[in-house]
Amino acid sequence: MTVLCLVEHDDSGPVDASLRALSFARLLGETSGDSLASVLVGDISAATLESLASFGVSDAYAVESDELHAYAPAGWARALVELVSTSSATAVVAAGTDRGNEVMAHVGAFTGLPMVANCYRASREGETTVRLSRQRWAGSLIEDAVIEASPALLTVAFDGVVAEPSPLPTSPTVRAHHPSLSDRDLSVRVSEWMDRSAGISLADARVVVGGGRGVGSPEGFAPIEELAGLLGAAVGVSRVVTSLGWRSHNQQVGQTGTRISPDLYLACGISGAIQHLAGCQSAKHVVAINTDPDAPIISRADYAVIGDLNVIVPALVTAIRERGLGRAST
């Protein structure tokens, strides 16, 4: 018996979210004595195989199909459903990414089985019973639940699990799988890819300067932009700022925007609603500038300045310039 884990990969190997899913899947398997099997679509590179070995994978399935060179959610799901019987899976796990959640929803629909999203802990309690904890409200609320169905279909909360290699590395057996795909499985496929990356991406930025309602107007963002320039930072905003039309939605940090994980998040005039905090809880350091010492952001921040950002940020810009610090001080 196995726990199957869908692995998303790019040129450098499995993506981080999938390594976390592998850790989660291995720990789940340990509660029932099941081995860990990985599933990825396409060829398994040497670097990927090395990662799979260090995360304790026993069987590495490579789904080989000319029709899946372009991502097809139902096609991926069909391959997973086939491998459930091939590998006698007691659970199927994927990262809680856009693709992971989508593919697992299709697996749930194909099989009629429940799918539980954003889990961070799970253990087997009986042949068809899994006890689990999962995130609701993007991590601001926890649900403890029991599923009575087999295999259990689970996705893994990105910030709820650490990517931890197995104490017992393996040498995975690579197994090719050729799925039988119907036209319907392939009716939705990526037909084109457009690169839009330009400048510092918010999701990957090492420093983010955030602005909220306290900025007061679209024009009020000029000092925030200036500070971001000096710090080599991306600008992020809260939901209210995009709802008011002050800034574009692609700068929104939060549950329904971008999730950031910078070394420093400087949150200016942001009160810290759950919606927003959900997007910045992976920041290493949070510094808040806010007029309200009781704002929720203050209890989540490491450091805070109590005051009006519209006074403090321009003064901070001037101070950095005067000392000849920061980037592009021209």
């Binding site: 010492p293 300045v305 109590i306 005051g307 403090i312 901070l316």
Partner: peptide, 16 residues
């Protein structure tokens, strides 16, 4: 709870 660096403009040097 956060460490408060100060209130208003007087906090700017600590922030830098």
């Amino acid at each position: 709870r956060a460490e408060i660096l100060g209130t208003g403009l007087e906090a700017v040097p600590a922030l830098v």
